[in-house]
């Protein structure tokens, strides 16, 4: 026997557990991707998809967000039938679009329309990360531009919930130009006194962050949302340094003066209603 054998680990036999595995139906429980806490899906839904343990805000798709934010969850949808085509004949794009439609149940990465928040009528555009990582191609650009124009025409406030990886590569230059198109529409709308509230949700980067999402008269964000222009990996490769964990979070952006407010999901509707009230309330009591 050699000395090193003294330290070697003994091998134990393993006996399969006699307790039967509990049969948990699919979707009943949910494990938080941030802190790992397991909670009932129903509880999670009730908590607006925010982890009760760590406050992590789960990503929402467009219709979940609409249900949570608009009065009675009601939206009179604009341009519901608008779909992407493949103008560049980009390899694999047409098939990927079909797959994304099936996966998300959406026709593209943004849903637009009219509804009310706290009784105030508004035009909203809500992006969905589960369609093509929320990327902006011709359709998203057009729908958002039309929403801005509708708000302008009807003299309604505009609220955009953004989440996007940026311009959609498969439409290359056409995607890039949607940044200019949406921003130009905002120039008219805001220049004419229109109110635009931008809400960053997790994640908002690239061409969406660098166009309409950053141009709100008020820029709000959900806690923990990733907000930035360039991706973390690209930046780390450029500066050859590890970035801090909180880099590009909503809180980081707040600290660096890029946001007006970080608003927890449970307070979002009330905050929006309050802002709308500030712009719509008349000077009734003031002179009394």
């Amino acid at each position: 026997m050699q000395i090193k054998d003294l330290f070697s680990k003994k091998k134990y036999a393993t006996i399969p557990s006699e307790r039967p595995k509990r049969d948990i139906p699919e979707g009943l429980m949910n494990k938080c991707s941030k802190c790992g806490t397991i909670q009932y899906s129903k509880e999670l839904e009730k908590n607006l998809k925010v982890c009760s343990a760590c406050g992590y805000h789960y990503r929402l798709n467009a219709w979940e967000r609409i249900a949570m934010t608009l009065d009675d969850g009601r939206l009179e949808e604009y341009d519901a039938g608008m779909e992407s085509v493949d103008p560049l004949s980009f390899p694999g794009y047409a098939a990927k679009l079909e797959a994304q439609k099936k996966k998300s149940g959406l026709k593209d990465s943004v849903v637009t329309g009219e509804g009310a928040i706290g009784g105030f009528p508004v035009v909203v555009a809500v992006m969905s990360f589960d369609f093509f990582t929320g990327s902006m191609g011709s359709v998203a650009g057009e729908k958002i531009t039309r929403a801005i124009e509708a708000a302008h025409e009807k003299k309604l406030p505009l609220i955009i919930f953004s989440t996007s990886s940026g311009a959609r590569m498969q439409e290359s230059i056409l995607s890039l130009m949607q940044m200019a198109k949406t921003s130009a529409a905002l120039a008219k709308f805001q220049g004419d006194g229109g109110l635009y509230i931008s809400v960053f949700t997790d994640p908002t980067t690239g061409g969406v962050s660098a166009s309409f999402a950053s141009l709100g008269d008020y820029n709000l964000a959900e806690p923990g949302a990733l907000i930035g222009f360039a991706g973390r990996i690209v930046i780390e490769q450029t500066i050859r340094q590890k970035l801090p964990d909180n880099f590009q979070t909503a809180e980081f952006n707040l600290q660096h003066g890029q946001l007006d407010k970080v608003v927890p999901r449970k307070d979002m509707k009330a905050t929006l209603a309050k802002l709308l009230d500030m712009h719509c309330a008349k000077e009734v009591s003031f002179h009394e």
Binding site: L186, F212, I227, A230, I235, F247
Partner: peptide
């Protein structure tokens, strides 16, 4: 492209680009 760096992000790279798009339109 715009410089991909941490200080650029801290000073609002997205906002700087977005603002130019909107202001140039006007």
């Amino acid at each position: 492209g715009a410089y991909p760096g941490n200080t650029a992000e801290e000073r609002g790279q997205s906002e700087a680009i977005a603002r130019n798009l909107r202001e140039m339109a006007g």
